[in-house]
């Protein structure tokens, strides 16, 4: 930056377009930071939903409590699905670094399947709860529960959509710089969702059953 500034000093007043002079790999560097800041703002959304659940989570309105509803073994399987998908995405990134398109695609596909299994199990759990009469409008506890866990599930769902689109992109264009950047953004997004899930299974499921 300093060298550009000294170069442009003598060029007169109309030499104001220093964004072009920064060099072409500048946008890639700031994309990662920008995406990280997006993730942090997403983190705030979840923080607000966690706070709502913390405040409303014990207002059962004479309805079912977490102890009556949650099946911890199902949650444990669900958690392992997300954890497996995290490490398989990691393997995809390692293959991407080696420029191996076929293996990158393979690990991305495995990640997508684990993600789909997670969403499927969550939908099965929700359907089971609603079948038992524990609908979102039953009590404040259930409203906040569905909002928090549902928001996380929606994030994973859109993550899978993004993953499929990127697999098509990689298939069409290969592992070009743009696709590598996109895959790195999705990598951060995917691992971030796993971090949020740690909070969900601890705070909502495990501590809910404890009470």
């Amino acid at each position: 930056m300093a060298s550009h500034a000294t170069q442009s000093l003598g060029d007169g007043a109309d030499d104001r377009v220093f964004l072009d002079l920064e060099g072409e790999h500048h946008p890639e560097g700031s994309t990662m930071l920008g995406f990280w800041i997006y993730l942090m703002s997403d983190c705030l959304i979840f923080a607000v939903l966690f706070a709502t659940y913390a405040v409303l989570g014990r207002n059962y309105a004479a309805g079912p409590a977490p102890k009556d509803l949650f099946d911890l073994s199902l949650v444990a399987v669900n958690t392992s699905m997300l954890l497996f998908s995290s490490i398989t995405y990691g393997f995809a990134m390692l293959e991407m670094a080696k420029d191996n398109i076929a293996r990158t695609q393979l690990w991305l596909a495995v990640t997508g399947l684990f993600g789909a299994a997670f969403v499927g199990l969550e939908l099965y759990e929700f359907a089971h709860l609603i079948h038992e009469g524990a609908t979102p409008q039953r009590s404040a506890f259930l409203s906040s529960f569905y909002t928090l866990v549902g928001t996380h599930g929606l994030h994973v769902t859109f993550g899978i959509v993004w993953l499929v689109i990127l697999m098509i992109q990689v298939r069409q264009r290969g592992l070009i710089a743009e696709n590598q950047r996109r895959l790195m953004c999705l990598s951060m997004f995917w691992h971030f969702l796993d971090v949020i899930w740690i909070g969900v299974f601890t705070f909502v499921y495990l501590m809910g059953v404890l009470q």
Binding site: L33, L94, M96
Partner: peptide
């Protein structure tokens, strides 16, 4: 490139 700002990890 600037992409390894977050690294690939090992």
């Amino acid at each position: 490139h600037g992409q390894d700002a977050h690294g690939h990890g090992s």
